[in-house]
Every structure is written in structure tokens, then in C-alpha cells.
Amino acid sequence: MSHAYLPETITREQADAFPGVTVLQFGTDWCGYCRAAQRVIDPVLDKADDLRRVLVEDGKGRPLGRSYRVKLWPTLVFLNDGVEVARVVRPWRESDVEDAMNAVREPSA
């Protein structure tokens, strides 16, 4: 399934308040790294029906990406009840994304 990055539609406060598992995926549609990484991101996230996925078009001065200190695209920030549990930057293997999914789903101690 093809996904498109959208200009920021949420604030950091809203992201912090999301219940359950959320993946914030920062990047742009024109980014070569982002487009190449889709082949390993989509198969993992598309089959996970228990998460919220938000593709955030990032760029200089965009507050949401800066609040998460995003420097490279794509960056996937995995949240559980609004708390960052895992992060994947420029994944090149499906296992990179799967490892983060496993970490965000693990019950906290």
C-alpha cells in the first residue's frame, strides 16, 4: 500500500496523549531514502492492525520533528501511550522495523 507524507496535522501534546501503540514516521515524499525504505517499512506496518501510523512531512523549522530531534529521514518513532519506546532511522531491513514493533508491544516492567 502506498502512503503519503502529510504536513503536520498533530502537535507534540496530541502525540503524547495518543493511547496505545503509535508510529510517527517522519520524512517527505520526494526523499530518496524515504522512498527506498518504504519497501521494508510498509510490509511490517501494513500488517499491524493494532497501531496508529502517522506519516509526518518533516522539514526545517517543523515543530513536531524538532521536538523528537529528528535529523535524518525516514525516522520512525514508536510510542506506547505517548511515550517513546523505540526509534528506527533509515531502516534497510524489515527486521529493523520488526524489532522496534516488538519493543513497543512488550509490557513495561
Rank of each mutant, 00 (worst) to 15 (best):
I41W: 02
G59R: 10
V89N: 02
R35Q: 15
V56P: 01
A86T: 06
D58C: 04
E13Q: 15
G65P: 06
R66K: 15
V77Y: 00
S108L: 14
K47N: 08
K47M: 08
R105M: 11
A103C: 04
V85K: 14
V56S: 03
Y33G: 02
L76S: 12
Q38E: 15
V77F: 00
R105S: 09
A109K: 11
E98Y: 02
D99E: 13
E84I: 02
E57W: 09
G82N: 07
R62K: 15
D50F: 12
E8C: 02
E84V: 07
P91S: 08
Q25L: 10
A4K: 15
R52C: 01
V70F: 00
Y68A: 01
D99H: 11
G32V: 08
P19M: 04
Q38L: 12
R62N: 11
V85L: 05
R52T: 15
A36R: 14
P74S: 08
V40P: 08
H3M: 14
S108V: 14
P63V: 07
Y5Q: 06
R52P: 00
W73I: 03
W92V: 14
S2Q: 13
S2R: 12
Q14D: 05
P43L: 08
R105D: 06
T11A: 05
R87C: 06
V44N: 03
K60R: 11
F78I: 07
L64Q: 07
D96I: 01
D81H: 12
K60I: 09
K60S: 13
C31Y: 02
D42E: 15
M101I: 11
A48E: 14
C31I: 05
I10E: 04
S2I: 11
E94H: 05
D99P: 01
R12I: 09
A86F: 01
L51E: 06
Y33M: 06
L45S: 04
P43Q: 10
K60G: 02
A17K: 15
W73L: 11
A4H: 13
D29T: 07
A100R: 07
Y68N: 09
E94N: 05
V97K: 03
I41K: 09
L6R: 14
V89D: 01
V89W: 03
S95N: 07
F18N: 09
C31F: 08
S67I: 00
D96S: 13
E94I: 01
S2M: 13
D16M: 10
Y5P: 03
T11P: 00
Q38I: 00
S108T: 14
D96T: 07
A37Y: 04
F78K: 08
D58F: 05
R93Y: 10
P7Y: 05
F18C: 08
N80F: 03
P107N: 10
T11C: 02
L51R: 15
V70E: 01
S108W: 10
R90C: 05
G32N: 10
T9D: 12
D81R: 12
V44S: 04
V21R: 13
A100S: 07
E94M: 13
V97R: 06
F18L: 14
R66N: 09
S108Q: 14
L64I: 03
M1Y: 06
R12D: 09
P74R: 06
R90S: 11
D16V: 01
V70H: 02
R90G: 11
L72F: 12
M1K: 08
V85F: 02
S95Y: 00
A17C: 06
D96K: 10
V83H: 11
A17G: 04
